Amino acid sequence: MFSFIVNMSMVAFAIVNVPVSIATILMNMFFAYCMIFSQKGPVNSIKPLLNVLLWSLIGCNLILNILNLLLVFFDFVDPGPSIHILLAAGILFAMWTGFTASLALNVCCYFQIVPVRRPFLIWMKKHFRLFVYLALFVDRLFFLSEFLVRVIWEVSAMNLNSTTAHVNITSETTDLGIYIFSHIDFWIRCCYFLLCLGIMLASSSATVVYLWNHIKRMEENASSFSTLRKKQQMKVTILGIIQGVLFFFASGWLMTEELFAYFTAFMDQGGHLICTVMALYSLVTTILLGVGQAKFYLMAKNIGSKLQTLKCPLP
Rank of each mutant, 00 (worst) to 15 (best):
Q269F: 09
G244F: 06
I274Q: 03
G244N: 07
M255S: 05
Q243E: 15
E258F: 01
L254E: 12
F263L: 08
F260R: 01
G252V: 12
Y262L: 00
S226H: 13
F260T: 06
L228M: 11
L259N: 02
A261F: 00
I241N: 05
L246G: 06
K231I: 08
F247S: 05
V245Q: 00
L246A: 03
V236G: 06
E258G: 02
V277P: 12
G240Y: 03
M278V: 12
L239V: 09
M234V: 11
I274G: 00
L246F: 05
E257T: 13
Q232A: 14
M234Y: 11
T264I: 06
S226Y: 06
L273N: 07
A250R: 03
D268N: 15
M278A: 14
L239C: 15
R229S: 11
T276S: 15
S226C: 12
G271L: 05
L228K: 07
T227H: 15
T264E: 05
H272I: 02
G240R: 01
F247C: 02
I274P: 00
C275I: 14
M234A: 10
H272C: 10
K231W: 01
A250E: 03
E258S: 04
F260A: 14
T264W: 06
T237C: 14
V245W: 00
A261M: 00
T227Q: 15
G244A: 07
M267A: 13
